[in-house]
Each structure stands twice: as structure tokens, then as C-alpha cells.
Design a protein around this nucleic acid. Structure first.
Length: 798
RNA sequence: GCCCGAAUGGCGGAAUGGCAGACGCGACGGACUUAAAAUCCGUUUGUGGAAACACAGUGUCGGUUCAAGUCCGACUUCGGGCACCA
């Protein structure tokens, strides 16, 4: 078959017939199937796109044939750094290169033959979309979920921009590999931490890979412990967070993070110089390799003392960079006897190490002893087990008004300001008189000016565009300035699944009533690398919009599937530097989209991925030709009456088995076994040998079973066998269970657990019959015990 | 360092605790052909054996069970995540 020709032919027919259109009136049967939309890069569709979009489309097509109204839209996440970097290098404007790339990719995506409904296309860099991204920002601001604060941010000196924690990999910029610095800046933050608890809790409600849920749980990092307030000698106080309140009696010093605001206030004059020097060094340290946990502890004494509220003891206040400003309270109580870090520090600086826990069962408890045990040297808590001692001490602190139970999260607020050009402008005006003034909604979108110098200068490119930056304050009318920054592109992608069903809506981002019907996304498919970024942000935004009353779902993505990663033929990740990149076009242009897609289905376990090998591709082409010959033979003989009814029954068994298995496999994203079942059926049909009406019936079913995977090919055969309808519009075959009932099945017979052979038995034979047959087979008179599972196995214990 | 996941023929990969290796690639053999390609039909975990068959076998060691690739415990290697989180 000419696979290249049929691609075009049927794609045209489907378009004419609107075969992929979502029928709004059938919304009660909707299935929202979504693939993570892609960034429009200059290169052609890569293998990952094919693997994600092409195979998810197999799933979508199956659902459609099974009677669901499938909504499968497509679009582009088109703001972002690559276009801007490309512009800096080549002088081609990001908007121009992006729009050009989108046009190219649209054509390629259409050529895939996937059943996207393009009427709902979304492009995040166009004003009709980012107008509503800005609207989203304003709603978050109105509801106190967006705030501006001075905060240390990750600064990439090479990209000249702030980057998110998630984009810092091993202390380096994820994109360019430069060492990330820390810098204090005024930044907009979304208060995702307000939702930490719910984001954690609702993971139990969604059908996601356990691994992904675990990653989010760890990322949120809930930690239940206590808070302890230390007064400072000479006035003032600060709090520490601890999970080991039971060790409070053993606290021999306290440590503040170098960035802690109290440091400057409490440092005594004679220590000031050393502390200042340490702070300076610490900021440099953090730029260097922070990943080393074996790094020797450093720190300086402030000269100040704090009072341990549990025993009134004065303890020195130190500053050390092993305490993180961004976690807990930025201060810790140090109990060197029972914490390895404190132990290392105390050893180095010769601070007291006092045991307050011993092992409960007499097992070795050399210091530092970090296990749970029994409290000692702890006043009223002596003799209590760790958990009880924690409670007792925290209760006591609560009575004293010096602390109590406290939960802390590792999750931090989401920094969304980017000192970049190619993003959605932040819709805020800074007025010298009125302060932060949100742009009125009627003035949205805040358009991105075209003619801007976006070469990195350390400042936002928009800051130097006078006609953009200078505005009148919407409140007082005086001269004011726009916020010069743009939004993190993760903001754009945090709500696009809401826009898809409302893609053309002009007067609002989405219609609440309609969105309630369309959401949640039933099945979401994309890479696992988004576990702690996009997937968490989208959940947060959904919950925030729900609390504002705009939607009424708790979770955006009911079921989540991650595709695996296809590696280069060398088993390594594909990369330009390795030169092991596989270009799908090289194969699609030879074999057509069906063959290539079916190869992708068959060669990998979908969620695992694995190394690419071209060897299997021609085999798939051969297989399809084999099917074509078979189907045409069956078509020729369709008028013949079957001669052998036993053979027909066997064939019908094979057909129905394939129907059942294929459907279940595709629904489970087990595409490789679905293809295997098709091949088995094909082999069985070849063995059947006669060309008669039974074989023709089987071939009709085979064509339908193949439709989700190789739709062009299936259409061609469907047409060649006398049909005028579109097979993609046909119903998926239904398994006839009665054809799967066999009079006799092969039952394995084991002797002492070792397989000896098989006997033929009725699948519901009773134990007596089975035992008799098994003993006869083994040549035994009796047995101590016989384990019999009907239809499964007989194990004889002699 | 901590937390997850994985390990099955020459290769990609199948196996709700119940016949390990489905399906395919590759290889080998046969049919068709003057020949080749294409196609069709076989064989293909290892060892021994002409064969029937026997024994061994799912990274390593131990355990639970009538029965373990699958469950449990320890370890090895690889992959992923987090990484001074108090």
C-alpha cells in the first residue's frame, strides 16, 4: 500500500467530514483528553511529540469509537526564553519567529493524522490569550494571592534573569548551566503556600502515578513539629522550628541564618566585623557548590545570648549558613548531642554537647544519637519516650506562651516576575502616590510593544521602552510607571486547560457553567519532568479559581499518564552534542504516519520508553501489507459459506479475545500489547486458511480494531472492502463473551510444584473429576493433597 | 546522604501469586524461484541427549507459600527525585 498517499487522502476526507469535531450537544458523554501542549521550536516535530501526541491520539480515537464525545484540542505554549535568546542571536523578533514556527508545526501536527479539534486552538503568546493570563493575575491579586515582596531570588548572570527554584539544577541554571547567584529583588509571588495542605491532601483523590504524587508530597514537604520562642538577653525574641522538641533541654546554642533580619540588630560591636564578613562570604558560598553535604560547617558568634524557655538557660547566638533563611523560621535551636549537623558544628567550635536522649532498649547510642529513645537530663520530661516527651515539652511551652505545636512546609511561594521581554506583561502600575495599582480589567490586555531592545542589560527590556513604561496612574492620573516585568511562562500554562473549551470566547476567559461541564480533564498525558512545576501550579490555580467562585472543580486533571523517554539508539538521552537525535520525518517521509506510529506503539512499554531502533519499522510496514492481503482475500471470498463450523468457532474465539484485550490494553496505555493482540489475530486468520464469510466477518472486526492505531490504513481497507462510510466513525467492536467460553481448556498439572504436563478439562470441572484426571495423568493412585484452581492449575502433593 | 523505581533470551519487550519468555526483531532451516527480492511454513533460554525426556533458569543471597519474575528481608548495579528542610 502507498502509505504516503493515503495519509493525505484520508486527512482531507476527515476534515471535510469534520470527523474530529467536538459536538457540544453531546457534552454529557464528553471525555477531555489532553496532551501537554508544546513550545513551538524552529525544529520539526521531534520524536517526543510523536510519542506523546501520536499515541495519546490512539487512546482518544478508541474512546471516540466507543461512543464518547472526545474533546482533544491542541495549542502552543509560545512565550518563553528560547525565542528571545534566538532573537538576541539573530535579530529576528520573537513574535515573528514564534508565529512562523507555529505555522510550521500546525502543518506537521495535521500531517500526523491525529484527531485534534483545531477549532479550539490556543496560543499563549497572542493577546486574545494573554489578556486572560493578565486577568488571572489580577484576580489572584484581588484575593490576596499575589503579592510583591523583596526576596532573595535565583539570578542567572548569563540569562540575565530571575529563575525559579525549580529551574535551578545542582546550583546551576537549568537552561544555560551558569552558576546561579542570589539577589534581593522586588518580585511578584503567587501564594501557593496558602494551599500547601490542600495540595497535599487532595493527591489522594486523583488517579495519578504514585511516583508523581510522591514527588509532589516531598516537594510540599509537610513537617509536623513545634515552635519554640527564645527571648534575647537585652530584649527581643525569635522563634525556631523543630521536629525534636523533646531535645530542648539539650540545646546548647542557637543559630540564625545569615540572612535573618535579627542578625544586624543583635550583633555586638566587637563581633560586627566578623559577622559582616561572614554574611558576605555566605552569599558567595551559596553561589558556589551548595550541593555538597560534606562541606565543613562554618559560622560566627554574634556576641548575643538567648534564653532557653524550658530551663531559663542562656545560650550563645551564632550565625551559620547551614541554617536556611527560607525554611521554617530561618533559625534553629542546636542540640549537638542529637543532630549530626549541630554535632559537627559544636565539635568544630567547641560548644557544649549534652546528652538528653538515651536509647530505649539499651542498644548502642553513641553521640550524635539521632534515633528516638527516652529523655534524660530533661527535668520534668525525664523517662518519657521521645513522642511523649515532645508533647510534654510543647504543652509546657504553650502554657508559658513560648511556643507549641507547629506545622511547616518546604514548599515556597511561586515567584512569577521575569526580567524578560517575551512573556505576558504584568498588569500592574506603580504610582508614586498610590503605590501598586492593578491595571483596570477594561484596559486589558496590556499589549506587549513590538519594537523593543531586548538585549540583556540586567534590567527588564520593557523598562527602557519609554512609551510602554510611562503611564498615567488609573487612580490619581499622575505620572506612573508600568511594572517592567513579564510573567513566568508557567503562569500561561497553569490555566490553558480551562481556556481550551472556551477558546473563542471574547468577553471572558471562560464560561463558568460550560467549564463546569467540561472539567476536569479526564486524561492528561505528558512528561514526568513537570511533576513539581506545571502540574503543581495548575492544581494551585484551579483551587484558587474555585475559591473565587469561577469554577467548581477541585482538581484539574483526574487521570495523569506520563509517557516514557525515547533514548537514542545508543541508549543515551538524545542530544545535539551526542549526535544521537532521531528525526521522525526521516521515517515518516518513507513509511507514512501510520507505520511510524504503530512502530512507536509496539516497540516500547509506553510509560518506560527506551532506546530507539529502526529495525522494527519495516517489520510494521510488512505487517500492514500482510493484513491488506488477508483482508482482500477475505473480501474476495465473502460470499462463500463456511465449511467447518469448529474452525469458525475457534476463529470467533480469537476475534472476541482480541476485541476484549485490545480495548483494555489501549485504555491502559499498553499500546505494545494491543498491537501484539492484533498480530495474534492476524496470524490466527492466516491459519484459518479458508476464504469465506466467517473470515470476512473477522476481517471487518480486525479493520475496526486497527482503526485507532492506523486510521489511514484502516480507512483505505474499509473503502476497498465496499464501504462508503468512514471507519473512524464506526463503533468499536464489542466482545461477545459467549464466544470466549470453551468446552475444554488445557490445565497444567504439577507434581510437588513442578510442571509435568497438561490435561484437557472443562473450565468448571469439579475437584473430584480434576483430581482423578490429574492422578491418572501422573500414574498415581493417591495423593496427600491436591490443590485445584478451576481453569487454572492442579498441583498434586504426593 | 535520604526517598522512589527498575533489573527477564542475541535485541525490543510479555506475564490479576498458578504452564516464564506472549508479540516482534535478528538468526537458522524449509517451500516457491533459473536466481534474488517478496511471500508462505517451521525452529530459536541454556546444558545433556539422536529422540522421548531430564536438569538448570527472570541481577545476588536468604525467607514466606502447595506454588514466587511477581510477596517479605538484606545486598549489587542502573535510572529518577530531593539534597545542611532543623
Amino acid at each position: 500500500m502507498d502509505f504516503l498517499k493515503i495519509d493525505k487522502k484520508w486527512q482531507k476526507r476527515w476534515e471535510e467530514a469534520k470527523a474530529d469535531s467536538f459536538e457540544k450537544k453531546n457534552v454529557d458523554k464528553k471525555k477531555y483528553v489532553l496532551e501537554m501542549f508544546s513550545y513551538p521550536s524552529a525544529a520539526n516535530l521531534h520524536l517526543g511529540h510523536w510519542y506523546n501526541f501520536g499515541l495519546t491520539d490512539v487512546y482518544a480515537r478508541l474512546l471516540r469509537m466507543k461512543g464518547h464525545e472526545v474533546f482533544q484540542p491542541m495549542g502552543f505554549d509560545s512565550f518563553g526564553l528560547p525565542a528571545e535568546n534566538y532573537a538576541i542571536k539573530t535579530g529576528i523578533h520573537p513574535k515573528d519567529s514564534t508565529e512562523k514556527n507555529i505555522a510550521t508545526m500546525e502543518v506537521q501536527l495535521r500531517n500526523m493524522g491525529a484527531s485534534f479539534d483545531w477549532d479550539y486552538e490556543v496560543v499563549t503568546s497572542r493577546p486574545d490569550y494573554f489578556k486572560w493570563t493578565q486577568w488571572l493575575f489580577l484576580q489572584l491579586y484581588k484575593h490576596g494571592l499575589a503579592e510583591e515582596k523583596l526576596a532573595p531570588v535565583n539570578w542567572c548572570p548569563s540569562c540575565n534573569t530571575v529563575i525559579a527554584n525549580e529551574q535551578v539544577v545542582d546550583g546551576a541554571c537549568e537552561r544555560c548551566g551558569s552558576t546561579v547567584e542570589r539577589k534581593e529583588m522586588r518580585q511578584w509571588f503567587f501564594k501557593i503556600t496558602n494551599y500547601a495542605e490542600e495540595l497535599l491532601r487532595d493527591l489522594d483523590k486523583i488517579d495519578w502515578p504514585e511516583k508523581t504524587k510522591l514527588m509532589q508530597r516531598n516537594w510540599i514537604g509537610k513537617s509536623a513539629g513545634g515552635e519554640v520562642e527564645f527571648d534575647l538577653v537585652g530584649g527581643g525574641s525569635f522563634k525556631v522550628f523543630t521536629t525534636r522538641a523533646d531535645t530542648l533541654f539539650g540545646c546548647s546554642y542557637v543559630v540564625l541564618a545569615p540572612e535573618h533580619p535579627l542578625v544586624d540588630k543583635i550583633t555586638t560591636p566587637e563581633n560586627r566585623e566578623a559577622v559582616e564578613e561572614y554574611k558576605r562570604q555566605a552569599s558567595v558560598q551559596s553561589e558556589i557548590d551548595r550541593t555538597s553535604t560534606v562541606k565543613e560547617k562554618t559560622g560566627v558568634f554574634t556576641g548575643a545570648y538567648a534564653i532557653n524557655p524550658i530551663n531559663g538557660r542562656q545560650v550563645p547566638v551564632w550565625v551559620a549558613d547551614y541554617v536556611l533563611a527560607t525554611y521554617g523560621t530561618g533559625a534553629v535551636m542546636a542540640v549537638p548531642a542529637h543532630d549530626t549537623r549541630d554535632f559537627d558544628f559544636a565539635t568544630k567550635f567547641n560548644l557544649p554537647i549534652e546528652r538528653v536522649v538515651k536509647s530505649a532498649d539499651g542498644s548502642p547510642d553513641d553521640l550524635p544519637y539521632c534515633e528516638y529513645g527516652v529523655a534524660v537530663n530533661s527535668g520534668f520530661a525525664d523517662g518519657k519516650k521521645t513522642l511523649e516527651a515532645k508533647t510534654a515539652i510543647l504543652d509546657k511551652l504553650a502554657q508559658l506562651g513560648k511556643g507549641g505545636q507547629k506545622v511547616t512546609y518546604r514548599l515556597r511561594d511561586w515567584s512569577v516576575s521575569r526580567q524578560r521581554y517575551w512573556g505576558a506583561p504584568i498588569p500592574v502600575i506603580h504610582c508614586p502616590k498610590c503605590g501598586v495599582v492593578p491595571v483596570p480589567e477594561k484596559d486589558l490586555p496590556v499589549e506587549l510593544p513590538y519594537d523593543v531592545n531586548f538585549n540583556p542589560s540586567g534590567k527588564s527590556p520593557l523598562a527602557s521602552k519609554d512609551s510602554y513604561i510611562n503611564v498615567k496612574c488609573p487612580v490619581c492620573g499622575e505620572d506612573a510607571k508600568r511594572d517592567p516585568d513579564t510573567l513566568d511562562t508557567f503562569v500561561c500554562s497553569s490555566w490553558y486547560y480551562l481556556r481550551y473549551p472556551n477558546a473563542k470566547l471574547a468577553d471572558k476567559p471562560f464560561d463558568t457553567e460550560w467549564t463546569d461541564k467540561m472539567l476536569p480533564v479526564d486524561t492528561y498525558v505528558g512528561g514526568a519532568e513537570h511533576a513539581c512545576m506545571h502540574l503543581l501550579y495548575a492544581r494551585f490555580i484551579t483551587k484558587a479559581l474555585r475559591d473565587m467562585g469561577y469554577i467548581h472543580v477541585d482538581e484539574p486533571f483526574k487521570k495523569l499518564v506520563h509517557q516514557g523517554i525515547i533514548l537514542g539508539p545508543d541508549g543515551k538521552r538524545m542530544s545535539k552534542s551526542r549526535g544521537n537525535i532521531i528525526n521522525p520525518d526521516d521515517y515518516v517521509s518513507v513509511y507514512g504516519s501510520d507505520v511510524f506510529k504503530m512502530y512507536l506503539c509496539f516497540a516500547f512499554s509506553y510509560t518506560e520508553g527506551g532506546p530507539f531502533s529502526k529495525d522494527g519499522i519495516s517489520a510494521i510496514a510488512k505487517y500492514l501489507d500482510r493484513v491488506e492481503r488477508l483482508v482482500m482475500k477475505a473480501y474476495e471470498g465473502r460470499e462463500n459459506a463456511p465449511a467447518d463450523l469448529k474452525k469458525v468457532a475457534s476463529l470467533e474465539y480469537d476475534v472476541n479475545y482480541a476485541v476484549k484485550a485490545c480495548s483494555a490494553d489501549i485504555e491502559n496505555f499498553s499500546f505494545n500489547t494491543a498491537v501484539a493482540r492484533l498480530m495474534e489475530l492476524t496470524n490466527a486468520m492466516y491459519k484459518y486458511d479458508d476464504a469465506d464469510s466467517a473470515l470476512f466477518n473477522a476481517s471487518e472486526t480486525l479493520i475496526k480494531l486497527m482503526t485507532p492505531i492506523v486510521p489511514h490504513f484502516a480507512e483505505e481497507l474499509w473503502e476497498a472492502t465496499g464501504h462508503t462510510s468512514l471507519v473512524v466513525k464506526e463503533s468499536y467492536p464489542v466482545c461477545d463473551e459467549t464466544k470466549l467460553v470453551k468446552a475444554e481448556v488445557e490445565i497444567p498439572v504439577q507434581l510437588l510444584g513442578k510442571l509435568k504436563g497438561t490435561i484437557l478439562l472443562s473450565p468448571d470441572a469439579d475437584e473430584a473429576t480434576a483430581s482423578k484426571e490429574a492422578l491418572a495423568f501422573l500414574g498415581l493412585d493417591s495423593a496427600k493433597k491436591i490443590i485445584y484452581k478451576a481453569g487454572k492449575i492442579i498441583n498434586v502433593i504426593a
